[in-house]
C-alpha cells in the first residue's frame, strides 16, 4: 500500500518538460525495467527530454549524453526520477 502511494506521487520521465533534466532513481515495472537496463538506462544516469512527437507521444530522451532513446509516455512513466 505504502509503496503504491509513493509510486503514485513519484516524478517520472513522463513529467519532464522539453529540455528538462532528471536523474533516474528506479523503475516501477519489472518487465520494462529489464529492457531499460539493457538499453543503458541505469539508476543514477542523467536523462534529458529532447523532443516530443506530434500529438505528444512518443517522446525522445537523451540518455547520459550518449544516445537518444524514443519511448511512449506509458513507458516513460515507468522511469522514476530523483
Amino acid at each position: 500500500m505504502n509503496l503504491n502511494k509513493e509510486r503514485m506521487s513519484a516524478r517520472t520521465v513522463s513529467h519532464l518538460k522539453k529540455g528538462e533534466k532528471g536523474i533516474i532513481k528506479s523503475f516501477s515495472d519489472r518487465a520494462m525495467s529489464l529492457k531499460l537496463l539493457e538499453m543503458g538506462c541505469l539508476p543514477g544516469c542523467e536523462v534529458r527530454l529532447d523532443a516530443i512527437a506530434p500529438f505528444g507521444d512518443p517522446i525522445c530522451i537523451n540518455v547520459g549524453g550518449h544516445y537518444s532513446l524514443s519511448l511512449r509516455l506509458n513507458e516513460a512513466a515507468v522511469i522514476e526520477l530523483e
Binding site: 529532447d50 523532443a51 516530443i52 506530434p54 505528444g56 525522445c60 537523451n62 549524453g65 550518449h66 537518444s68
Partner: peptide, 23 residues
C-alpha cells in the same frame, strides 16, 4: 568537455521530430 550527441543530429531532430514541422 560535455558528452553530447553529434551537432547535426540534435539540429535535425529539433526539426524532423517537431510537433508541427515533423509532419
Amino acid at each position: 568537455g560535455v558528452i553530447e550527441q553529434p551537432y547535426w543530429t540534435r539540429k535535425l531532430d529539433s526539426i524532423l521530430l517537431h510537433r508541427v514541422w515533423g509532419y
